[in-house]
């Protein structure tokens, strides 16, 4: 058998190193929003996603500054991570802890603040 070339050795080594890095890289807040939130909260964030037809409780309108400013960033973080039930809201809002890291959820809270053009209390 031919001895392994140095270049092959280095390539294989680099590949093994890359494959040990965690597979899921950080995603942008607007991309997470498009993937997980838009199905119910809508393309425009107005609470009118494709799923609302038969819902018993309608999703929050993220562009409603009055409603959104009544919730603290911590509350919004909690409801995204743990679901509606965690803040005594609807079971229709699921927990997203399994698809977003805490850092991504914090970014998403800031994205929601952009959509409502508001902050907590104002």
């Amino acid at each position: 058998m031919r001895p392994m070339r140095w270049s092959t050795f280095v390539t294989v080594g680099a590949f093994m190193l890359i494959s040990t890095i965690p597979a899921l890289a950080k995603e942008r807040a607007e991309d997470n929003y498009r993937t997980y939130c838009v199905q119910c909260h809508g393309m425009q964030g107005n609470g009118k996603g494709i799923n609302i037809r038969d819902m018993s409780v309608l999703p929050r309108d993220h562009t409603d500054a009055k409603e959104m400013s009544a919730r603290s960033d911590d509350d919004i973080f909690k409801v995204i991570k743990e679901g509606g039930v965690a803040i005594n809201k609807s079971v229709l809002m699921p927990a997203w802890a399994d698809v977003m890291t805490d850092e991504e959820i914090r970014d998403l809270v800031q994205h929601l603040r952009k959509l409502c053009k508001c902050s907590y209390g104002k």
Binding site: R34, T35, V38, Q39, G42, M43, Q44, N46, K48, G49, I50, I52
Partner: peptide, 14 residues
């Protein structure tokens, strides 16, 4: 679904 929706009168539509 994100690739197959559009805004409609009553909300997003397929």
């Amino acid at each position: 679904y994100g690739n197959h929706i559009k805004p409609g009168a009553k909300g997003d539509e397929v």
